Simulated scan of single mutants.
Amino acid sequence: MTVSPYKPKRQARPRRPQHARKRAAKVWGRKKGMSFGRQLALAACIGIAGGLLFAFFPEALPGRNAPGALAVSAVESDALQPAERAGALVGAARINDGDTLRLGGETIRLVGIDAPERDQTCERRSGATYRCGEAARNYLAALTRGTTIKCEGTERDRYGRLLATCYADDVNLNAEMVRAGHALAYRHYSTRYLPEEESAKAAATGMWQGRFTEPWDWRQGSRIEATAATDCNIKGNISGSGRIYHLPGSKWYEKTQINPGKGERWFCSEEEAIAAGWRAARSPSSFD
């Protein structure tokens, strides 16, 4: 057998189909990694997306939710602000009455106390009536004016109001209202402020200067039962006929009831009644 001195020709490798070549190119591109230009483009997109995020959602910035950052002075804003995660609320107070206030959109009921209603009247030691409900509201307004109010509470009453203990700086507003005699310890639900109530009673401050109806009874329709002083037994009645006084023993004396809430009162003498603008009841044939 004769051997050829020439090397045999190399046989050509069969050419792969076009779709196979494209697939290999993609794989090869991934193995080599992303080009520098593409890396720059991707970094630019990430930067733009981050800028838009912080522009439309500033609360996502670090430090925005740090403790103390949300506590606001009452002078700066009247919006309700959570002071801390424990549930305290800090803001400017708007007073509704002697035991209710508002912080922003939240209604706060001072827990453990009960103040007279806005339209409630009480009686002074002299027997004259005054609007003790309005006096209680004014006192609470004076305590909270121009200062930061902090309220702490976790429960609500049946009206949806937050039951809370509130402070004006270091002053416990709940306790101070009772201590000043402008509210009572709400003993049906708590005895916490009974010592403050006893102190106000002993000092005859606020409502304790005279006679009053407990707020919880006032809301049920009870009123002060007027009684005469020892020698002041002339009844000063107000009716459709005007201001009329009735002497003991007169026809209408026993049937006449004195309501201090209407401005009616007792007199110690006819001279006193006449000087105050009352006139004597007419004869039994009259309509007085």
Rank of each mutant, 00 (worst) to 15 (best):
Q209G: 15
A228M: 09
W216I: 08
I238M: 12
G240A: 11
D217I: 04
I224V: 13
N233P: 04
I238V: 12
G221K: 00
T227H: 07
Q209L: 05
I238Y: 07
G236F: 07
E225L: 08
S222M: 11
E214Y: 07
A229C: 14
C232F: 01
I238A: 02
D231F: 10
D231E: 14
T227N: 07
D217W: 04
I238F: 09
S239G: 13
S239N: 11
A229G: 14
W216K: 10
G242L: 05
E214T: 09
G210M: 09
C232N: 01
W218H: 06
A229V: 02
G221N: 00
W218T: 01
G221M: 05
S222T: 13
S241V: 15
R219D: 08
S222R: 14
E225P: 08
W218D: 04
N237M: 12
R219M: 10
A226F: 00
I224H: 00
G236Y: 10
S239V: 12
N237E: 14
R219Q: 11
N237G: 08
G236P: 06
E214G: 11
G221D: 03
P215D: 05
A229Y: 12
I238C: 09
S222H: 06
R223P: 02
E225K: 09
C232P: 05
Q209K: 05
W218M: 03
R211L: 13
W218N: 03
G210T: 06
N233Q: 14
W218S: 02
K235D: 03
E225G: 13
G221H: 00
C232I: 01
A229N: 11
S239W: 11
P215K: 01
S222K: 10
I234Q: 07
Q220T: 08
R223G: 04
A228L: 04
E225C: 09
R219K: 12
K235G: 01
E214C: 06
Q220W: 02
I238K: 03
T213L: 00
N233T: 10
D217T: 05
R211N: 15
N233Y: 07
Q220G: 14
G236S: 07
E214S: 13
S239E: 15
G236E: 10
I238Q: 08
S241H: 15
R223Y: 06
C232Y: 04
K235L: 06
N233W: 04
Q209E: 15
D217L: 06
F212E: 05
Q209D: 13
T230P: 14
F212G: 03
Q209N: 11
N237K: 15
R211P: 12
F212L: 02
R211E: 15
E214W: 03
T213C: 11
E214L: 11
N237W: 15
A228D: 06
K235W: 05
R223N: 05
G242I: 10
S222V: 15
Q220M: 05
S241I: 13
E225D: 15
G221P: 00
G240L: 11
I238L: 09
F212V: 08
I224N: 00
D231H: 12
T230Y: 12
F212K: 02
S239P: 06
N233C: 07
G242E: 13
G236M: 03
A228E: 12
E225T: 15
A229R: 08
E214D: 14
E225R: 13
